Amino acid sequence: MPVEMSRAPARTVFINGRFLGRPVTGVERFAGMILNEIDSTLASAQAGRFVVLAPQGVARPAGLRAVGFQNVGSRGGHAWEQTDLWRASKDGVLVNLCNSGPVLHGRQLTVLHDALVYRHPENFSRAYGAFHRLLGRLLAKRANLATVSDFSRQELAKLLGVDAARIGLVPNAVDHVLGVEPDFSVLARFDLQTRRFFLFVGSPAGNKNLANAIRAFVALDRPDVALVMVGGAASTFAKSLLGELPPNVISTGRLSDAEILALYRKAAALVFPSIYEGFGIPPLEAMALGCPVIASDIAPVREVCRDAVIYFDPYHVASITSAMRDVVDETVDLAAVRERGLARTHDFSWARTARQVLAMIAEIDRGNRITNRTSAGFHP
């Protein structure tokens, strides 16, 4: 049911819609879900006060009702953000949901999802990394900041010289998977109807630690079990690591949400071997769909998943192999793992996170700095 905000904002609230022209990764998923929830939350009295601003050529999202939409400016990319977006939004409150925003804007909320560009610069080109590290430091001086986990909040506070209490918390959620009908035809396409398989969902970026996951699976030496890797570049990465892929290592390329959900439903377990994350959405997605998770024993995964997954040491191949073997040999109580996983997902809701974003917007509109008290609904 639409609700009134506790106080109508005096200024127009502009939402940076640059993300709408990009492929959907975890960051774009976050932004899209927050936009949808804000749109469905706003009462009719608020219609017109919230407006998405996007570069030329970016289409209005289907289904927007209360939130307006405008294409502005003539540039693209970061040049659009720093000039066209700033000019169009400078008299209002600006909300940037995807790691960047115009540094000249004095009344903005910017969500920095993690500190990856500082902690793992090798993942990025030299120019990209240098620009985003500088942009983050400039935004830390000008913008109100938020992030998706307490782990990332502490990381960003340390690296950017910001009081952690001044970084709001707006966690990812998982209920987006519940309204999607799985497309089980993907199982036949990859000959998985009757095979047991582990699932990896993500990119082969260095922090994702896919190399150790593949080595661990090969060491498992179970010809009756497959490792299915979902992601656009996973096949190229794996071939450079192993030469030709073993018959039981399958790279699917990019898949639709419905196809990925079908794999979650049928997988023996999701393998999440990251050595660094800001949050980690795939474990939550798997847990919500009844798929056991074996995951890296690192702080952000512990924060999000608690006791709902089987942990391994991501730096030791033998530890990952041991967790895989526990699953295929069923030496752990997988039913209990599934039950704990489902229970943990109930703590995350896109509607709750959107309400936290709206609370921060109201604070900024009143001329206040946000604090982590606006994140009281989430307990890491």
Rank of each mutant, 00 (worst) to 15 (best):
A267S: 11
L227Q: 04
F237L: 15
K239R: 14
G278F: 07
V218T: 15
A258S: 10
K239Q: 13
P283G: 14
A234Q: 11
G231Y: 01
V225C: 15
V293K: 02
T252Q: 07
G243S: 03
A226P: 02
L263K: 13
V309R: 09
G278R: 08
P300K: 00
M229V: 04
A238W: 08
A258L: 09
A286D: 06
P300Q: 00
I260P: 04
R306Y: 09
R306M: 07
D257M: 09
A268F: 12
L245H: 08
A258Q: 14
S274Y: 12
A295I: 06
D224Y: 05
P283V: 01
G280S: 10
A226H: 11
L227A: 04
R265D: 11
C305L: 04
E285R: 12
G280T: 05
I250V: 10
A238I: 06
L255W: 06
I294A: 02
R215S: 04
N248A: 05
R265V: 08
V271M: 11
L227H: 15
I260D: 07
P300T: 01
M229R: 04
C305K: 14
G290H: 08
L227P: 10
V301E: 02
V218E: 10
C291P: 01
K266M: 12
I260E: 03
S240M: 15
P247L: 13
P283L: 08
P247I: 10
